[in-house]
Simulated scan of single mutants.
Amino acid sequence: MRNISDLIEQHLKQLLQESPNGAVEIQRNELADKFSCVPSQINYVISTRFTLEKGYMVESKRGGGGYIRIQRVELPALKAIQGYISQTIGERIDQNAAEGLIYQLEQAQLITKREANLLKAAVSREAILLKLPLRDEIRARILKSMLVSLLVK
């Protein structure tokens, strides 16, 4: 006999498979009612079985009318993006090179103007008040993390 977590996972995967766009939006409380469990059980299943490493992006909106959106991510595309970012940025990157990469991504319309401004602010010398070469190493880590988050939609 399967446990409740397995049943919830199977149900969500079935919904994703039937979805024409590979995404599903659910109401946590409605799903909990359907399976006669507490809403935290839904959170547990989503946080452990629908992770980025397993090929899923999860987005949640809290409050009235809130939802949890689960989307299947094509792993080859994810690996290609991560590979490009890792290769371009490397282990360290100076501010000019970081801003150049951000500019290229914005011009290619892979990120918005607002996202570009946030990235620039996060990797600026003023935000990372450390001595070289540590500053460039931290900048590279921040930039890689933020870009993976932004580019995997």
Score class of each variant (00 low, 15 high):
Arg2His: 10
Arg2Trp: 09
Ile4Leu: 15
Ser5Arg: 09
Ser5Lys: 15
Asp6Glu: 15
Leu7His: 07
Ile8Val: 12
Ile8Met: 07
Glu9His: 04
Leu12His: 02
Gln14Cys: 03
Leu15Met: 14
Gln17Met: 13
Gln17Ile: 01
Gln17Cys: 00
Glu18Ile: 03
Ser19Asn: 11
Asn29Leu: 06
Asn29Pro: 00
Glu30Arg: 02
Lys34Gly: 05
Phe35Trp: 05
Ser36Val: 05
Ser36Lys: 15
Cys37Ser: 04
Val38Arg: 09
Pro39Val: 03
Pro39Cys: 06
Ser40Glu: 15
Gln41Glu: 14
Gln41Thr: 15
Ile42Trp: 01
Asn43Thr: 12
Asn43Ser: 14
Asn43Val: 12
Ile46Thr: 11
Ser47Gly: 02
Thr48Ala: 08
Leu52Gln: 15
Glu53Gly: 15
Ser60His: 00
Arg62Val: 04
Arg62His: 13
Gly63Lys: 12
Gly63Cys: 07
Gly66Arg: 02
Gly66Glu: 12
Ile68Leu: 05
Ile68Pro: 01
Ile68Lys: 00
Gln71Lys: 15
Arg72Cys: 07
Pro76Phe: 06
Ala77Gln: 06
Ala77Asp: 02
Lys79Met: 11
Ile81Glu: 00
Ile81Lys: 00
Gln82Met: 08
Gln82Thr: 09
Gln82Asn: 10
Gln82Val: 14
Tyr84Gln: 13
Ser86Tyr: 12
Glu91Val: 14
Arg92Phe: 01
Asp94Ser: 03
Asp94Ala: 00
Gln95Cys: 04
Gln95Val: 14
Asn96Val: 14
Ala98Asp: 04
Glu99Gly: 00
Leu101Arg: 07
Ile102His: 02
Gln104Trp: 09
Leu105Ile: 11
Glu106Gly: 00
Glu106Ala: 02
Gln107Cys: 09
Gln109Ala: 10
Ile111Glu: 01
Arg114Met: 07
Glu115Arg: 13
Ala116Arg: 08
Ala116Gly: 13
Leu118Cys: 07
Leu118Lys: 03
Ala121Thr: 08
Ala122Pro: 02
Ser124His: 10
Arg125His: 08
Arg125Leu: 11
Glu126Asp: 03
Ala127Lys: 12
Ala127Val: 10
Ile128Glu: 08
Leu129Cys: 09
Lys131Thr: 08
Leu134Pro: 00
Asp136His: 09
Asp136Pro: 02
Asp136Val: 08
Ile138Trp: 01
Ile142Val: 15
Leu143Val: 02
Leu143Gly: 01
Leu143His: 05
Lys144Asp: 09
Lys144Met: 07
Met146Ala: 11
Met146Gln: 06
Leu147Tyr: 05
Val148His: 04
Ser149Cys: 05
Lys153Phe: 08
Lys153Pro: 05
Lys153Asp: 10
